[in-house]
């Protein structure tokens, strides 16, 4: 991946006048300790703050200093580590309740903090949403869908519901980086946004033949 990047950089420099494109190989390893120190200084402790969220795990660190273009070896390391991080519902059932999955898919609520507008405590009891529409088209009925991820409309129609498909879908939603290192998709189960059971509900929403996704 790194060599490909270098090539891309050479091409960019040769043909573009901006020379400052996002696909140029970036590496912040040298200045990373300064970036960390700056972050520590810029997010003061206080009521309603959770500074632990600024602490990076190994995967976040690698993806940051490489600007999401890890070397081949780093990518393999991330995928292996994130695969191990996947947890499953105690029942072992990876296809949950698609109706609950539908609600979780469209809700973007949860985990916002700070002094100005933290998520209201009363609403927090309803739990977090999966925020899928921020990045994906899902149900054909919902038009307000983002495009950062591929369309999931009709997701189950052509894939069927074989054990492999169910397992892949569950694991992908639980921890996107178990398949794509430095993916822009949040590690929704691993980061504690949704529980294993909730991820299984969304899996059912994407795959069930009765789900609106597949009509």
């Amino acid at each position: 991946m790194k060599t490909l990047n270098t090539l891309a950089l050479a091409v960019t420099l040769a043909f573009s006048s901006t020379g400052f494109a996002a696909d140029a190989a970036k590496d912040f390893t040298q200045i990373n300790s300064k970036i960390d120190a700056m972050v520590t200084k810029s997010f003061p402790a206080g009521e309603g703050q959770d500074l632990s969220r600024l602490k990076q795990d190994e995967t976040q660190k690698t993806c940051s200093v490489r600007a999401n273009q890890p070397t081949g070896a780093e990518a393999s390391e991330i995928i292996a580590r994130e695969k191990q991080n996947i947890k499953y519902p105690a029942s072992g059932n990876l296809m949950g309740d698609w109706k609950n999955g539908e609600k979780l898919t469209s809700s973007g609520f949860g985990m916002r903090i700070g002094v100005i507008a933290p998520d209201p405590v009363a609403k927090q009891k309803g739990g977090n949403g999966g925020n899928c529409y921020a990045c994906h088209a899902v149900s054909p009925k919902e038009v307000a869908a983002g495009n950062m991820g591929p369309s999931l409309t009709g997701y189950g129609k052509y894939r069927g519901t074989s054990a492999e498909v169910v397992r892949y879908t569950y694991e992908k939603i639980y921890n996107a980086q178990a398949f794509v290192a430095c993916s822009n998709m949040p590690r929704i189960g691993h980061n504690g946004i949704l529980t294993a059971e909730q991820v299984a509900d969304i899996t059912a929403y994407l795959l069930s033949p009765e789900s609106p996704v597949n009509q």
Partner: peptide
């Protein structure tokens, strides 16, 4: 620019 690429928080953003 480094901070612009720093991934952190519950959403890995």
């Amino acid at each position: 620019e480094g901070l612009f690429w720093r991934r952190h928080g519950s959403m890995d953003f």
